[in-house]
Design a protein around this nucleic acid. Structure first.
Lengths: 105, 105
DNA sequence: CTATATACGTAGTCTGGCTACATGTAGCCA
DNA sequence: TGGCTACATGTAGCCAGACTACGTATATAG
């Protein structure tokens, strides 16, 4: 997949992958790989700053836990984040309708 | 529609709107508005440089003509551009499948 | 005669994902 | 026991690409 196409859709992906479960950063990257059949392989330099940004925005909450000696920062959706996810899904539908409409017009 | 979401899809839009017809820059902007029911209102500072870039890439060819005293640079798809459009359409389908898959997984 | 729509174009900004780097632990294998 | 790989988090700085803000010019309506 061409670079840059992700632009503007990263937040939606991160919120979606955290819908209904708690995951730490590394696991989020793996979950996205899994769900996209390997098409999405986001670098840590993309994901970690984004997660912190979403937490600052109040859409995610995090807590440290230690699993077999390793520190993990585990993220979950806040109520606001859940609403934001709904909004992102709606925007995605609108976006694909608009661009898709032009592409196959 | 959120800014930046267009990123990486502009070329596809321009190629698609020129599929099967010749249009000048200003008319391209209007055609995109029309086809998107007003959702796409691209500024000239976005469209004109992109058209020149696509021409340099060999995907578009242009010629000047004068209509009622006004100069117009009219663009059309080259054969390479036609192929590029097919590729862009395929990439769009892949892109929406990947992101859409994650969003509603 | 001026305001608006038509028409093309460029310089510079800004944003947001990416590259490259830094840090450290656990577990395996030679 | 030493090194390699996977796991795990994080930051600084770069860069591409669309956008903002201009500048230019003609036709037409009021």
């Amino acid at each position: 997949m061409k670079a840059d196409t992700l632009r503007g859709h990263l937040d939606a992906l991160l919120l979606a992958v955290l819908d209904g479960r708690k995951l730490h950063g590394y696991a989020i990257i793996e979950a996205l790989q899994l769900r996209s059949d390997g098409a999405l392989d986001l670098p840590t330099g993309t994901v970690y700053p984004a997660l912190r940004r979403l937490e600052r925005a109040g859409w995610l909450a995090s807590e440290w836990d230690v699993v077999s000696g390793r520190k993990r920062r585990t993220y979950r959706l806040t109520r606001t984040g859940q609403q934001a996810l709904q909004a992102e899904r709606a925007e995605w539908r609108e976006f694909t309708a608009v661009i898709g409409g032009v592409l196959q017009a």
